[in-house]
Structures are given as structure tokens and as C-alpha cells.
Design a protein around this nucleic acid. Sequence first.
DNA 1: GGATGTGAAGTCGTTCACAGCT
DNA 2: AGCTGTGAACGACTTCACATCC
Lengths: 193, 193
Amino acid sequence: MLEEKGEVVVSSAQLAYACGVNAAQVRKDLAYFGEFGIRGVGYYIKDLYDDIKNILGLNREWRMAIIGIGNLGASLLLYKDFLKKNYKIVAAFDIDPSGVVGRVSEKMGKPVEILHPDRLKDVAKERKIDIAIITTPASEAQKVADKIVEANIKGILNFTPVQIKVPKGFVVKNVYFTNVLDNVAYLLHLKRR
Amino acid sequence: MLEEKGEVVVSSAQLAYACGVNAAQVRKDLAYFGEFGIRGVGYYIKDLYDDIKNILGLNREWRMAIIGIGNLGASLLLYKDFLKKNYKIVAAFDIDPSGVVGRVSEKMGKPVEILHPDRLKDVAKERKIDIAIITTPASEAQKVADKIVEANIKGILNFTPVQIKVPKGFVVKNVYFTNVLDNVAYLLHLKRR
DNA sequence: GGATGTGAAGTCGTTCACAGCT
DNA sequence: AGCTGTGAACGACTTCACATCC
């Protein structure tokens, strides 16, 4: 955003304000990965942007599969434009492809391929899938996770409200926004009594 | 889930395993709010469940408004069944109600009322709105937040990838799942180089 | 002069380990 | 005998404050 505004350099204090954190925090975090700033000046925005992309691994393409094409899964499939360009959804799985393919295809305006989860291992290899997104019902989450592990997909994004167990070497992160909502409710609740 | 299985008591060790944390953590966190367990036994599931609901403020009804009826906002409106029963969506706002109301009503199968954000203050009072959910484009987020503050809605759930500034006394929490996705990508990236 | 990079100090949260109850 | 509740030890992260360098 700063770049679009025509800005050239930015200070840790500005970045800190924008992120709602302390300026020393910004500097320490960046310094952990190298020296990106110039003393007395700040950080060159263009360079910093590129450096951060390199650090985070966002130059590489990440190929993803969505497993479980219910409301949430279908939404992700449909509205994938909020994903950065380096993330690609390259496969969709559902235990009942025939029941779901029509509904989703209609909404997308073009036919959508939906595969049975049993094919995960083959397809993962064929299409070089890096990350699996679990959007099944909670009751299926661990079973699906086991299949993901079997398919040797190392990254998992779990939208299900259960803790998934996977062997070491696999990365699991959870996304469950109703927890955040509960947190807002709790903090409001605190103040009223 | 344990209750449905017919279990009566649960130990901190079991809870810890299910949550992927340390047992001492579970005990300390609970002990912070009172004494809920029985030494030598564990925690009575029914009682613990009720106690936690009380602590978190989940017995009360929480009334919410969604502001910004794009893809995400409309999805939340449509598929609100994943919300716990004590959360109610009682209003929807968009800067272009006429452009959006048809599309959403069609999908929902019944007419949906969508209001202009200028009416936020009135409606917030009328309908006793506790929490506002921002699902506008990022560029609008701060403006919308200002309106929310003006309407004196104390809780904000921000789905936008910008840090919102509000006066003290307001609660803001952010939900932005692509950050979590970036985190998965980063951790995978770390291992490969 | 001014903003970074960074030891040192400070704060916060986690884990240990065991006394205290049931 | 067993599991909670909790002080104390530990570890991790955050902030301070200033030497360093452009």
C-alpha cells in the first residue's frame, strides 16, 4: 500500500503503528532474518517487500487441495480471488462427488471436477499438492488427516474445531473463526460484570 | 463430545491431550477462574461445561450485525448454522443495498433485509447490537470501524487485512485466514531450504 | 541527526513438582 | 491412590535504551 502511495522508505515506527505493535518488535523480528534497514534512514519499501516475500517463501507456487466441499469448502473454491497469486487450488475432494458437483458447478458457471478422497494419494503425486485444506465436518477431520499423511502432503490447514494428530514433520495450523468470536464475547462479558 | 459418549469425569491430562497442550496448563487456566475440579477424581464434565460457558459469557445472547455483504459477508449470512445458538445475526448492512439484496435473497430462498451503513447508529440501538462483523473491502474497514464506534457497538470482529484503530473500551479481534496459510507455507519453506 | 540493530532488563506465560484433598 | 491446585523454577518473548552506522 505504501508503495502504491509513492512512498520510498518506511521506518520501524510507521510499520509498528500500522501493525499495532511496538517499534522495537518490528526491528528485532526483521533483524532476526538479516539486515534489511539502513541506519538513519529506515527500510526501502520495495526491497523490504521482496525480502519478506523471500523469507516467507511466497515466491514459490503453493499447490493446494480442498477436502470437503460443503458450504465452507465450496465458498473457498468459488471465491478464491482473495488468495495471493502464488496459491493455487489444484484439486477438490468430497466423499459424495456426484451429490456436490452439480451444485458447485452451477454456482461457478463452469463444470468443476470433484474427486473421491480415496484418490488423494494418487492425485497428490500427480498434481504435486503441497497443502491440504480440511473443510469436512469435524467428525471426519482425523480420518481425512490420516489420508493426507498417507498421501505425504506435508502442510495442513484445518478449518475443523478438533485438534488433529499427525506425525512429526507435518505442519498443521487451525483456522476457526468462531473461537475468535467467543473471545470478543468473553472480553465484552468481562466488562459488564 | 465426552458427554455424548456417556463419560462423567475427565482429567486435565485428557483435556490436555485433546487440546494439544500441557496438563498443568489446563489446570492453571481453569484454577484462574475458581476451583472446578475434585482432587483425586478430575472434573465433572457437565459441571465443567456449564462453568466454562458462564466464564466465557456464552449463556447470554449476543446480537450481531454484518457490515459488507460481498462474498464473505453473504456466506456468513447464508450459512450461519455454524454459529453457536447464542449468537444471532440481527442486521446486515451494505453501501449498495439494492445491488446486493436480490442476489442474496435468491440464494437464501427468502427476502433479506439489507440496510445502508448510515443507518447503523439507529439500528444498533433499536436492535441492541453487541458485535459488528466487518466484511467490507479493506479500503473501507477504518471508515466502517468509525461508524461502529459512533454507534457505540463495543465488539468488533474484523475480517479485513488491516489493523483498525478504535478508542479504548472497544474490543477488536481480527480473523484473516490467509495469514495462517502464509504461516503453513513459511514452515514448509523452512524445511526445504 | 536520526533510525537501525542489539545487548540487557523486564514482563509474561509455561512447566515442574509436590502439598493438599477426596 | 490419584488428581487437582499452586508456589517456584524455568523459558520465551517484549521492551528499553543506547552504541552503531548511514
